[in-house]
Amino acid sequence: MLEIKDLCARVVDGDAILEGLTMTVKAGEVHAIMGPNGSGKSTLAKVIAGHPDYEVTSGSIGYEINRRTRDLLELEPHERAREGVFLAFQYPVEVPGVSNSVFLRAAFNEICRHHGIEELDPIDFAVLLKDKMAMLEMDESFVNRAVNVDFSGGEKKRNEILQMAVMSPRVAFLDETDSGLDVDSMKIVASGVNKLRSENNAIVLITHYQRLLNYIKPDFVHIIAGGKIVRSGGPELAHEVEERGYDWLVK
């Protein structure tokens, strides 16, 4: 469903970061991306979501919409989101004044409208939200708090997965969602993510730690270095990296 081909991207008017990255993700799969700091993992995720700081210089991102392949690069960020592309941010952004429930309902209804489904009124949405929050064992007080404002690092990460649960994306990039989560929280979040998995969607986990992969089992593991994939393999690759680091791959 997602086919990234020879993707090259740079910071607008700046340095090149992605230098010919190719990766294919099929429905129902879980991929893990690992790689040294600064190798371009977050950049890849943000380019897929359409972040305006980056400019794609060549390559394409094929994405299946209604059984037809479109290049995501032709879509605005909000159109990508409405078509089911989701990014759980490495650094979630604070949105003062806007409560989590208002924000989530706005997002949810945008997607409904886009697909011609009836929107939910605040009461029906509250029921849906309560259910998703229970799945992630989140306290109800988060409903009325301003989005991410004064949330702890771990709470912000969990809030990202709540957004994912509400939006039911078809392809979700989770950028270091495990960093900052304590052991118990990680189990809860991982089990939440597992519940969201289906044969119709795909998940790409960006992580530094093999531990997460014990809970969310990947089908493929890719190592990014210097803006491209230098090695792909199965779950065993993550173990190898855990033991040996990246030097042997980067050379």
Binding site: G50, V95, G97, V98, A106, E110, H114, M167
Partner: peptide, 30 residues
């Protein structure tokens, strides 16, 4: 005093809101 930042805009857009929807959410919240 606050400024609507590019990061906030992108965050909201990545959740399916267009630019106008994002600004109006921020402004109505304000």
């Amino acid at each position: 005093t606050s400024r609507i930042s590019a990061e906030q805009m992108f965050y909201l857009e990545s959740r399916g809101l267009d630019k106008e929807g994002a600004v109006s959410l921020l402004v109505n919240g304000f």
